[in-house]
Amino acid sequence: MHGLNRAIEMFAPKSQTHSGGRGSFEEAVRPHLDVLYRVARRMTRNAEEAEDIVGQTLLLGYKNWNRFDGEHTRSWLIRILKNEFLGLRRKQRSRPEETELDLEVGDQNKSWTGIADRLNSERIIQAMEQLPEEFRMVSLLCDVEQMSYEEVSEALDIPLGTVRSRLFRARARLRELLADFVAEGAH
C-alpha cells in the first residue's frame, strides 16, 4: 500500500482544476456546447437556427436540471436538442418531410480500402447531407462526435440494436457515395 501512496503523489498533476458534474448546471453543460452546436448545425443546416435550438435546449435543460440524475450529460442534452428540433419541424409544416425509415444500400462496393485515404471534409459533409435524417444522426454522433453506441442509444432514445443497424447502413451508403466522388475525381 506504501507504493500506492507514492502513486498518489506521482499521478497528481500540479495545477489542474475542473469543476462540474452534478453540482452546477453551468459547469456541467459548458464542455458540451461545441458538440451541441455542431449537432444542431448538421440538423438544421442553418447557423442562426442552430443557435436558437441550442439556446432552447439549454433553457429546457436548466429547468429540468433538478430532475436529471447527472449521468451522461452529453446524451441528455442531445436528447433535449433532438426533441426541440423535431418540435420545431412539426411547427414548420411548409418544410418537406425528410425522415425516411429505410435506406437503400447497393451491393457493389463492400471495401473501405481505396476510399478512406482520398477523402476530404467537404466531400464527407456533402455525402452525409444525402443520408436520411435518422441515419445521418447516428453516423454524426458515432463517427463525427465519437460517442459510444450506448450514449447514442440514450441520446436518440432508440435501442442499441437500432443504433448498430442504422450506423452500419449509414456507413455503407456513405462508402458508396464517397466511392462515387473518388471515381469522379479520378476522371
Binding site: L36, V144, Q146, R171
Partner: peptide
C-alpha cells in the same frame, strides 16, 4: 479507421461561436 478519422476531422469545418453559446447558458 482512416475513414472514421476523416469523419471525425470533418467536425472542424463547423466554426463554433463559443462566446455567443456561453452567453446562452442560463
Amino acid at each position: 479507421r482512416t475513414f472514421k478519422a476523416a469523419l471525425f476531422d470533418s467536425r472542424l469545418d463547423i466554426a463554433v461561436p463559443r462566446e455567443r453559446l456561453e452567453a446562452l447558458i442560463p
